[in-house]
């Protein structure tokens, strides 16, 4: 796939982005352009920089070098708030809900960027935009959990809450860091079905780190391979060969 120049539909753009933690490079000079509506799988062994890449796009981390653009605007010019919330939302493998709050509060959290401080405060006492919250939980298949304490839910149910929060947020780009890694295969596919249908029915862009090549081929349109922080390949999934995957995950790379 040729990436030359930014087309008007480019929603995420990374220009030679590097990220270092205490001098150690987690990501080294990665350039990438993602168009609206694409479903991109980020592949790579553990420690290869997948989470770092997603965090840079989410604005959770700032690049050490290079630039990140969202919808044509530099991310560095946006601070947390409604503008960023409309562009990107993110879910993680686990631990990113507030376990002590009830499910409804964790769903409402998706709206915090748009709500005033006063409304946010009131929402802790009584449900705001209850119809939206109920609809989101309905969509992810756990409407009966509205008032339940989040920590009482199973791992799969918590992932559904995280998806309901993304539905409440309504961002144009959805980032998911190993969204189904801790689940058994059948459940993982159920949840991927749900995530992908939520994303595609509203024309959103999905960027997700995934471990399974089966899931990559089934749900994604494009595969990006990372190894030790550098881009190994960037292919449409149809062109993703077992050869390329083997090289990506190989522990001892064959030297040329």
């Amino acid at each position: 796939m040729a990436h030359n120049g930014s087309s008007p539909t480019t929603i995420v753009r990374l220009e030679s982005v590097s990220k270092r933690y205490n001098g150690t490079a987690a990501l080294a000079s990665v350039s990438l352009q993602i168009r609206e509506g694409e479903r991109v799988a980020v592949l790579g062994p553990s420690g290869s920089g997948k989470t770092t890449l997603l965090h840079l796009v989410a604005g959770i981390e700032r690049p050490s070098e290079g630039h990140v653009q969202l919808a044509g605007q530099p991310l560095s010019s946006m601070s947390a708030g409604p503008r960023l919330a409309e562009l990107v939302g993110m879910m993680h493998q686990q631990l990113d809900l507030v376990p002590h709050l009830s499910v409804k509060h964790n769903v409402q959290a998706g709206r915090l960027g748009r709500w005033s401080l006063w409304k946010s405060l009131l929402s802790l006492v009584s449900l705001r935009e209850s119809e939206m919250v109920e609809r989101a939980l309905e969509r992810v298949g756990i409407p009966e959990k509205l008032h339940e304490r989040t920590s009482h839910l199973s791992g799969g149910e918590q992932q559904r809450v995280a998806m309901a929060r993304l539905l409440a947020q309504q961002s144009r780009v959805v980032l998911a860091d190993e969204p189904v890694a801790s689940l058994d295969p059948a459940r993982a596919e159920d949840l991927m079905d749900l995530l992908v249908s939520i994303v595609t029915e509203s024309g959103k862009t999905l960027i997700a780190s995934v471990h399974s090549t089966h899931l990559t081929r089934k749900y994604f349109s494009r595969a990006v391979g990372l190894r030790e922080g550098t881009l190994e390949f960037d292919l449409p999934v149809e062109q993703l060969t077992d050869e390329a995957l083997k090289r990506l995950y190989d522990i001892a790379p064959s030297l040329p």
Partner: peptide, 14 residues
């Protein structure tokens, strides 16, 4: 724990 806070910031919370 930082992860839930990060997620709240990612949904635009101050």
């Amino acid at each position: 724990p930082d992860e839930p806070l990060r997620a709240l910031r990612a949904s635009g919370a101050s």
